[in-house]
Design a protein around this nucleic acid. Structure first.
Length: 277
DNA sequence: CTAACTACCTGAACGC
DNA sequence: TGCGTTCAGGTAGTTA
């Protein structure tokens, strides 16, 4: 494989990356009591001090949001933003200048490190997501039965946005970001700018989203640089990407060079030959 | 209401 | 070599 051309920006955590973090974090934090929370003053942290003294009952996930159910009817919402990661104060990890919050648990210390400060933390009444609008209006989990080809078709028919920007709103389905949007649209042979997606193409996109996310979860996510799991390991999906970041390379299906454009302000790579509107 | 636009934030790559 | 500029990204807030 040729090295990637251009800038080597780390992808933000999307559903497979967040799920991989959740799987490592959950057994370590479930049942633990949060003795103290220390956070740098930050607009994107909402009421984190309310987590103090509460027990973490369960660590779940919706889309790219981690949701810790706390005792006392509260939830701790965690979003990794672009560069957020969790590390325990052990195994050679020492906090650096990019640690934005520290949770002292009854059995250890957990750091939230976030270089670019796009991550979010919020403690809210359980189920009350008015302070987190994307979560309040989040689409179905892509790997659950609630996500159907028919429902996706209905959602696509009801918007006038091009299909890729619409996917990125999190409304038709939860957890899709820039990487897996490009990958799924390539797999489904749908142009990212398409505004009319009929039932047949919606069914292909539905299947492609599931396939792409399932494979990425099996490889514990995509790492270019920033994303790493709680144990510091990288995901293994980067070398399997077919579309994202592959501009100039031949399309694996038709051998035409993949094209990169900017769509709704986001880098978008696709095949102009087999992803037609 | 929907959709489009912009701010946020930083370090690395770029380009002169 | 050095330094200013550009760019990546998800979400929230604002505007049309």
């Amino acid at each position: 494989m040729r090295p990637r051309r251009g800038r080597d920006h780390g992808p933000v955590p999307e559903l497979p990356e967040v799920e991989s973090v959740r799987r490592q974090l959950a057994p370590r934090v479930q049942g633990r009591v949060i003795r103290a929370v220390a956070a740098v003053p930050q607009r994107r942290f909402l009421g984190v001090e309310r987590a103090q003294g509460r027990r973490i009952e369960e660590l779940g996930r919706r889309g790219k949001f981690l949701i810790a159910t706390l005792s006392g009817g509260h939830e701790l919402i965690l979003h990794l933003g672009m560069t957020g990661m969790f590390r325990f104060r052990e195994g050679g990890w020492e906090p650096d200048a990019y640690v934005r919050a520290t949770f002292t648990l009854d059995d250890g210390v957990l750091d939230f490190r976030d270089v670019r400060r796009f991550g979010r933390l919020a403690v809210v009444p359980a189920g009350d997501y008015t302070a987190v609008p994307t979560l309040a209006d989040l689409g179905p989990e892509p790997l659950s039965e609630a996500f159907t080809a028919q429902g996706l078709h209905r959602a696509l028919a009801a918007t006038r946005m091009p299909v890729k920007p619409f996917l990125l709103t999190q409304r038709p389905v939860a957890g899709i970001g820039n990487i897996y949007a490009d990958e799924a649209l390539w797999e489904a042979r749908i142009n990212p700018r398409a505004r009319r997606v009929g039932p047949e193409r919606a069914a292909r996109l539905h299947a492609a989203i599931r396939a792409v996310l399932t494979a990425a979860i099996e490889r514990e996510g995509t790492t270019f640089r920033d994303y790493q799991m709680v144990n510091g390991a990288s995901g293994r999906n980067a070398t399997f990407l077919v579309a994202y970041g592959q501009q100039g390379r031949p399309c694996p299906r038709c051998r035409a060079p993949l094209t990169r454009v900017v769509l709704a302000g986001r880098g978008t790579t696709y095949c102009t030959r087999c992803q037609q509107r």
